[in-house]
Nucleic acid binder design. Structure first.
Lengths: 183, 183
DNA sequence: CTTAAAAGCTATGCAGAGTAGCTTTTATGC
DNA sequence: GCATAAAAGCTACTCTGCATAGCTTTTAAG
């Protein structure tokens, strides 16, 4: 049988396509193997376990999100930048709920994901510098932003907001709320 | 073999003890059956499936949380009540992360959990009445509160805040942020 | 004191993670 | 060109978990 040309990177791509289409619950080695055109045990030549695959996926997702957020805040500052960051973050999570869900809440404590996570946090820290926030004040501000936007998108993507009645307006108010807390 | 005296209620209690001790990932029919002193298939005489058991657990958890939150806001109003609600909510989720995690984000869309979820939301709505918020303004305010507090506790319980450096202060600021958004 | 429903059991099927051990492909050194 | 070893595939198997089938035992009710 001809070689399939697999690699950890290729498998991560296949797995991300899978969760994009079918959701994170559908992630299994059997499903990834089928899409890769290979028998399930063959995957172990490239990734150590399902957990390891998920970590690699998380790294890719965090990097993608970091890139998008960094681009969104470019050329903006203060309220403008914070709002752009929050909106971009939400847009990504909603457009790619399966991918977003693969990022563990404790990404920074997971060695494989820590570096990528720190870069994303760096973008959060950067938009706060314009407010003169440093040290523990910056930590608190980052936590407010993360908790708020993460909580919102988890509920929204999870169907937690009954009818989509004015969810946009709700998010606008959330952004305003965070901005006011930064003054 | 003597009867074990099981019922859906008893099994929910056993399962909640289990997730309290070992976390939600440890929830399995085999583990519940062992604690109940019964073979795994016997559980199907009382609950229809793992999913159904989780729904029953979610109902119990939401009811417990509702009771605690309702008690916490009794005799308080406005900022006092909102802060008490948020603090009680957080305290419950942190003290019982396994239980809290069993509640799906879309509890209101899950028929079995909808009624209990609506009661919890009722407590949120009640503390906002003192602010004169009704209709869509109340909806937006509830969403701000839910997203913020849920996001915070998910990150905190999930180990998302590196060192526990001043997490209390962070939460204080989150509460203040929400309160300001209600003025 | 009979009897039927309720509540247990064992056996079985199926899916997913992971391991063992074999075969085939392919890159590399001669 | 060709031998050969590592890389990459495969089948077969184990283990755990969910779930169903069908049998047996307990127990409550007439």
């Amino acid at each position: 049988m001809p070689r399939a040309g697999l690699s950890p990177e290729v498998l991560v791509g296949v797995a991300l396509d899978l969760v994009d289409e079918k959701g994170l619950e559908a992630l299994s080695l059997a499903a990834v193997a089928e899409r890769a055109g290979v028998a399930a045990p063959s995957l172990y030549k490239h990734v150590g376990s399902v957990g390891a695959l998920r970590e690699l996926m998380a790294v890719a997702v965090v990097r993608q999100l970091t890139k998008l957020c960094a681009a969104a805040v470019m050329g903006r500052s203060r309220a403008d930048a914070v709002a752009a960051l929050m909106r971009e973050y939400r847009a990504f999570a909603l457009a790619n709920p399966g991918r977003y869900a693969v990022v563990p809440p404790n990404a920074l404590q997971v060695p494989a994901v820590a570096a990528a996570g720190a870069e994303l946090l760096g973008v959060f820290a950067a938009v706060l510098r314009a407010y003169g926030l440093e040290g523990s004040a910056a930590t608190h501000a980052i936590r407010r932003m993360r908790a708020t936007v993460h909580g919102f998108v988890v509920l929204e993507a999870g169907g937690g907001f009954g009818l989509p009645e004015d969810v946009e307006a709700s998010f606008d108010q959330v952004v305003t709320m965070v901005l006011r807390s930064l003054e």
